[in-house]
Simulated scan of single mutants.
Amino acid sequence: MGVYMLKIAVLYGGTSGEREVSLSTGKGIINALKKNGHEVMDIDFNPERLNEILNLNVDLVFIGLHGRYGEDGKIQGLLDMLEIPYVGSGVLASALAMDKAKSKQIFSQYGIATARSKTYQVRSNNPSEISEAIKKDFKPPFVIKPNQEGSTLGLTIVKDIAQIEEGVENASQSDDTILVEDYIGGREVTVPVVGKQGEEKALPVIEIIPKSDYYDFESKYQPGGSEHIVPAQIPEEMTDKLQKHAVLAHQLLGCDVYSRVDFIVTNENEAVILEVNTLPGMTPTSLFPDSAKKIGWSYEEMVERFVELSIKK
């Protein structure tokens, strides 16, 4: 493990819809850092208490936040201005990954398959106008979700056009821009990526078997909500493709240190990218640590690797 002791602040909690998960991620990271011999300060982050960040005197910040104000580049920008190093992706990569429509444009330009999608501005239009527009553009099944929210919050799978208005309503509670995309059926897989920029490696592919018919918030985060199969039981050729595309997606957005890239493997055997998570869940039962275990990294070793990669930047 690390040979030096650092003073590390862990930011967790936050004010996004993913606060509960972040509390659990934070706890995991804090315990691991302490076991690794670091001096840890834990901060339940709130944008109304920025003085806690402005007065930080630490060697490194470990961001255990998810969703808005944590994963979207805002806190990264603040830390950059304060010249405090932090674990993970910088401002641009974080903001791009959080903006699903923008990141999809980049992926498809480089030959990574994405679902056909379109964005709609809620603020300038009323919900029924948007619903009418969606009816013209899409045929069920399709997905309505906020353009910038993690963890499938505010997501609706529209199987019948009667659900459109409610779906728009739901998604627009989280964001002024909603994203509508064709529903892609198939197997859900995710690929963790780790390494310094230009030398990233993909960890074993994980297949997620949701207990509900869709991998929703509950099945992501409730114990027993979904089953993880690591490594995923898929042909070697597909495994290679997923790992290559995951590293490429991570690099195209300019991510740093680690990320987790979600895909659907369709019944026609195509790998369709869903999104890149720049701050994936790090609770001890999360996907990333599960995959790291397969290559022999304990949770503590994994956390220490992130620290080492960040300090060497």
Rank of each mutant, 00 (worst) to 15 (best):
S22P: 06
G14N: 04
Y215L: 10
Q243R: 12
E268L: 12
M41S: 13
G195F: 10
T114A: 07
M5T: 15
T190D: 00
H245L: 11
T177H: 02
G185E: 09
H250T: 06
I53Q: 05
E71Q: 13
E149A: 14
P223E: 12
S174R: 06
S94A: 03
D262E: 05
S212C: 05
R123Y: 10
L33Y: 08
E236C: 05
V61Y: 07
L6W: 14
K135T: 10
N36S: 15
K102W: 05
I29T: 04
V205G: 02
I209A: 05
P127T: 15
K211L: 13
D44A: 06
S212L: 13
F62V: 00
K293N: 11
V193R: 05
I157N: 02
S22G: 04
V180H: 01
Y4H: 14
L242N: 10
L248Y: 09
Q163L: 08
V191P: 00
V58S: 00
P231H: 14
S226H: 07
G281R: 06
I209N: 11
G67T: 09
S174D: 02
I43Q: 09
N126Y: 12
K100G: 00
H245A: 07
E237R: 11
E181D: 04
F217Y: 15
K34A: 12
Q121G: 14
N147A: 11
M81K: 09
F62T: 00
K136P: 08
S131G: 15
A95W: 04
K211M: 11
S151H: 11
G185D: 08
L252M: 09
H38L: 08
E300Q: 13
T266Q: 08
A162T: 10
D256G: 03
S219Y: 06
V205P: 00
N46R: 09
R305G: 08
V122Y: 12
M302V: 12
K104I: 00
I161E: 13
I84S: 01
A32I: 09
K74W: 10
L92V: 14
F107H: 05
E308S: 04
A271R: 05
S259M: 08
A95S: 11
